[in-house]
Design a protein around this nucleic acid. Sequence first.
DNA 1: TCATTTTGTGCAACCGGTTGATCAATTCAC
DNA 2: GTGAATTGATCAACCGGTTGCACAAAATGA
Lengths: 339, 339
Amino acid sequence: MGIQLPTIKQIAKQLNVSASAVSRALADHPRIGLGTKERVKKLAEELGYEPNAQAIFFKQKKTHIIGVVLPFIREEFFSQAISGIETVALDHNYTILFGQSYDEVEKEKNVVETMKKQRVDGLIISLSKNTNNYEHLEAFNKYKIPVVYFDRVPELTDTNKVQTDLFKGTVDIVNWLSTNGCRRIALINGPEKMAASADRLKGYMQGILKQKRKIDMQLVEATDFSKERTYAAMNSLLALKNPPDAVISFNDYVHMDAVQYAKQKKIKINKDILFASYANLPITDYTSHPPRVSLEQYPFMQGEKAMQMMIEILNQNKTDNDSKINSKNEIIPTTVVTR
Amino acid sequence: MGIQLPTIKQIAKQLNVSASAVSRALADHPRIGLGTKERVKKLAEELGYEPNAQAIFFKQKKTHIIGVVLPFIREEFFSQAISGIETVALDHNYTILFGQSYDEVEKEKNVVETMKKQRVDGLIISLSKNTNNYEHLEAFNKYKIPVVYFDRVPELTDTNKVQTDLFKGTVDIVNWLSTNGCRRIALINGPEKMAASADRLKGYMQGILKQKRKIDMQLVEATDFSKERTYAAMNSLLALKNPPDAVISFNDYVHMDAVQYAKQKKIKINKDILFASYANLPITDYTSHPPRVSLEQYPFMQGEKAMQMMIEILNQNKTDNDSKINSKNEIIPTTVVTR
DNA sequence: TCATTTTGTGCAACCGGTTGATCAATTCAC
DNA sequence: GTGAATTGATCAACCGGTTGCACAAAATGA
């Protein structure tokens, strides 16, 4: 009761050998006698000895811990992503230190700071919607702690990123909607500052132009992801003299609110107006009005790729000694899914 | 580029003082001269010095890391819970090491093992649906690493638990359904092994008896949470000579599948059959058929309470030296929510 | 003026493992 | 039988802080 976890020294004392002999015996060092090895291993087994990861990593100046920072774990997109990260991490003996930014820059800074204090070996982060200053993250570069961004990536070129091809994906959505008869396609975009919003907008405009149609900025609204702002956006769109016959929402959560508002206004969902969205989350299967078109963004895969990229960088840093700045960029193709 | 994070020794060398002087200066030790303190603090600021948490905790034999193991982070119940845990943890300078069991005992064992190797200060866990042997967790007792269970708790008495009053909650649901005219109330329960299932069943039976009605075990089905098993359960219920006029599902996810199946069978949801469920997850607001009655289980609060309990235990262990086994049990009242 | 206290700082051990250097004992080669 | 190689194990330093103890210098008291 209340014993401390067994240490190498305890084993050493009990067997009257040195701590280093025990350490080497457990590592099957060739210069340790067979008898000693056996006795050490037997006792280690009996005591349930497990190496103190903290001590090893402390000495090696490695923690084998990767910090993961997300805006909201409750969004299925991010819970899928962290599952992908976790899966790959476990395969490589890394563990996940978890933190949320709740889409607030201040909280993001705090949690990132805490992780730096904990000396994580690397950081995987999806930015808060308001993050447009990256100082708190560039501090990591200085100390050669790799940072991998995924999905919500910064507008920097010399960083590691995993993202989906939102530009092409949005063009595809617009194409599909056009092919299916839509002539007034609206977009409820995210906050302007976000790169993800810019990509969507570019794709949207490109898609419209491809259809040899004019861009009408009245059809482009923005939301801060709050239900109120999304409602307001829908309200503006429905109030137009020439209202849209299709609405593309920033993601499935915005979509749900948009639909909820439209429903209140007696709009027939996916009849009067076709609804499109991003992410294609499994939960939408259970919702009253899943989007007619959704852009699958493979969040689990994004998580996997981000962690794989992290492992590569860490291994590379171990061998190479050159402090060349990493800038890997993995772009995952998207898929248009219809219902 | 590629500098290591500043250490106390670097500061000491640059100022020609000893490391201990620097350490004490930063801690405002009274025996350090004012001039020295100033110079040390100034340089520390300039270099952006941050104490190496790993080193401190290593020396103190504390990591200030709490392991959190959940079945599925993608379930909103658990993502809310971990947010509650995180909130309290941050307030007390603890960080969260994250792991999922995916409802598999083997994965649970692995992740728990990894956390032991990482020397977490404590473990907060919601058990996998199949965990009925607690050896891998009792190992923590031996080393006085506190374990707090929440929601899915084990059938042990001498452990720390945070749970909701499922027994009373279920009685309340049955009462509400009876008051609203239901005479044939069915229950789609979870796996038998789970304590949470047993509590629901007891509450269900108590509720029925209270109504001076007989218990019909044909109305009690079980699911392993897979869509297939839930479909099968609904199928059995609907095939009864005397089918139910109310169905209580184990949780909102089971509910969604149950409703989906009933819909296929042309049942009018919440008309022909009233549907009740547990958890009252926000996402149900967007689903086609939210449960008519839901038992709010306050997952965020459960997370908070679990972490608070953890902090208390850790503080208590610090002062008290007696190795008395903790067994705190916090039962959170539930609320019946109707739509 | 000398003994005593106070003040400011350094030394060294420690946490739990790892690892290069070292060393004694044994085996081997010739 | 002597020198060299091999074997088996120990020693000591290290990672980055913290902390009890020692110690010198300065301040205080009688």
